[in-house]
Amino acid sequence: MIEKETNICEDATFNRVYKEHAQSLRNFMFFKTKDKDASYDLVQEAFLKLWQNCSKVAPEKAKSYIFTIANNLFLNTVAHKKVQFKYIEGVKRTSENNTPEFILEEKEFGEKLKKALNSLTELQRTAFLMNRVEGKKYREIAAIYNISEKAAGKRVLDALEKLRETIENL
């Protein structure tokens, strides 16, 4: 296979790895930090580390390497801001008919969900959002966290149930 002979130190290989994983890593970091800029920096720092260690990391290991590095960098950033996610504007969050009362109710629900997301543990939230927003399968999440597929599924399911509980109690 050609891939095994390539090296991340080469520009072409590095760029390919970057294109393949940057967005997914950005999402991962964004779900953790809830911060657009902080997540960008974490992605760049992680790739910088990858480049500095390019000779030691095989291209097929690059993904787990950058996810691990970014996660460590995230854990090292002391101040985790208390921020909430934002919704994409103008996107209907319901399939049902829009009466003003209904829209208001939906809006309220949205606010409750944002608060509820903050009540999840960072691991639950990230796993859940990777699953729901990105559509990542349990297998992919398990690979990132280096846990079993079953544990990943459990984490997503736990998150969903915790969200429902929190929303109902708000």
Binding site: N27, F30, Y40, F85, Y87, I88, F109, G110, L113, L117
Partner: peptide, 12 residues
């Protein structure tokens, strides 16, 4: 409902 709303979260 949670699923629908979650999918509307803005991701950079």
């Amino acid at each position: 409902k949670i699923d629908l709303h979650t999918k509307a979260i803005a991701v950079p």
